[in-house]
Measured scan of single mutants.
Amino acid sequence: TEHYTFHTEEQAQRAAKKFKKQGLPVTIHEKNGKFTLQVN
């Protein structure tokens, strides 16, 4: 499991699309105004 932190939801969504294209499951969590992208 890898985690990436982004300052905006837009950045997180863009990164999520790249991972999803590779067939990886992705979840985004919002915490304290930051967005954490979790790749399993």
Rank of each mutant, 00 (worst) to 15 (best):
T36A: 05
N40H: 14
T36S: 06
E30P: 05
H7P: 11
A15W: 09
K34Q: 09
Q38Y: 14
T27D: 05
H7N: 14
K20G: 06
L24G: 02
V39S: 03
H3T: 14
E2S: 13
F6V: 01
T36M: 11
Q11T: 05
K18T: 07
A15V: 08
K17M: 14
V26S: 04
K34E: 09
I28K: 00
T27R: 06
H3Y: 15
E9D: 05
F35Y: 12
G33N: 04
V26T: 07
Q22M: 14
V26A: 05
L24R: 08
Q13D: 05
H7V: 09
L24W: 10
Q22K: 10
K18M: 10
I28T: 02
K21S: 12
F35M: 02
K18Y: 14
H3G: 08
E9P: 06
G23S: 03
E2L: 15
H3R: 12
T5V: 13
K20M: 13
Q22E: 07
K31D: 11
F35N: 02
G23D: 04
A16V: 05
T27N: 05
T8E: 04
K34N: 06
P25M: 15
A12T: 02
K21W: 07
Q11M: 08
T1W: 13
Q11K: 06
H29G: 06
T5N: 05
V39P: 03
H3L: 12
L24S: 04
I28M: 05
T5E: 10
K17E: 15
E30A: 08
T27M: 08
Y4W: 11
I28A: 01
T36N: 06
Q13M: 13
K20A: 10
Q13V: 11
L37S: 01
F6R: 00
K31V: 14
H3D: 08
Y4G: 06
G33A: 02
E2P: 10
Q38T: 15
E9G: 04
A12I: 02
G33M: 02
F19S: 02
N32I: 01
G23W: 03
Q13R: 12
V26Q: 00
E30N: 07
H29T: 14
E30I: 09
G23L: 03
R14S: 09
K20P: 01
F35V: 03
K34W: 09
N40R: 07
G23Q: 03
Q11E: 15
T1R: 11
T8R: 03
V39F: 12
E10Y: 08
F19T: 00
E2W: 15
E9H: 11
H3A: 10
E2F: 15
F19K: 02
K17W: 11
N32G: 07
Y4M: 08
T8K: 04
P25A: 15
Q13P: 00
F35L: 03
K21A: 14
G33Q: 03
F19I: 05
E30W: 07
N40I: 13
N40T: 12
T5M: 09
H7Q: 12
N32S: 05
R14N: 11
L24Q: 05
K21T: 09
K21L: 13
K21P: 02
T36E: 13
E10W: 11
Q22N: 07
T27K: 07
Q22G: 05
E2I: 14
F6C: 06
G23V: 01
F6N: 00
Q22C: 06
Q11V: 04
N40E: 11
N32D: 14
T27A: 07
R14V: 09
I28L: 06
V39M: 06
Q38M: 13
F35H: 03
K34F: 11
A15Y: 08
K34G: 06
F35E: 01
K31G: 06
K34P: 00
K20Q: 13
Y4P: 04
K31R: 10
V39K: 01
P25K: 15
H7L: 12
K17N: 12
H29L: 13
F35Q: 01
Q38L: 13
T5Q: 07
E9T: 05
T1K: 10
K34D: 05
L37G: 01
L37M: 05
Y4A: 04
K31Q: 11
H7R: 09
K34T: 10
N32A: 05
A12K: 00
L37P: 01
Q11S: 08
H3C: 14
E10V: 08
T8H: 04
G33K: 02
L24F: 12
L37V: 13
K31Y: 12
T36H: 14
R14T: 10
Q13G: 03
A16G: 04
K20I: 14
G33D: 03
T5H: 10
K34L: 13
A15R: 03
A16L: 08
P25T: 15
L24M: 09
T27P: 00
V39H: 03
N40F: 13
R14Y: 08
T1V: 12
T1L: 12
A16N: 01
T1E: 09
T8M: 03
T8S: 08
L37N: 01
Q38D: 07
E10N: 06
N40S: 11
T1Y: 13
T8A: 03
P25H: 15
T36V: 15
H3V: 13
A15H: 05
N32W: 04
T5L: 09
N40G: 15
N32K: 04
K18A: 11
K18V: 10
K18D: 07
G33C: 04
L24N: 04
E10A: 12
I28R: 01
P25I: 15
F35W: 15
H29I: 14
N32F: 06
Q22H: 09
V26Y: 08
K17Y: 09
H29N: 08
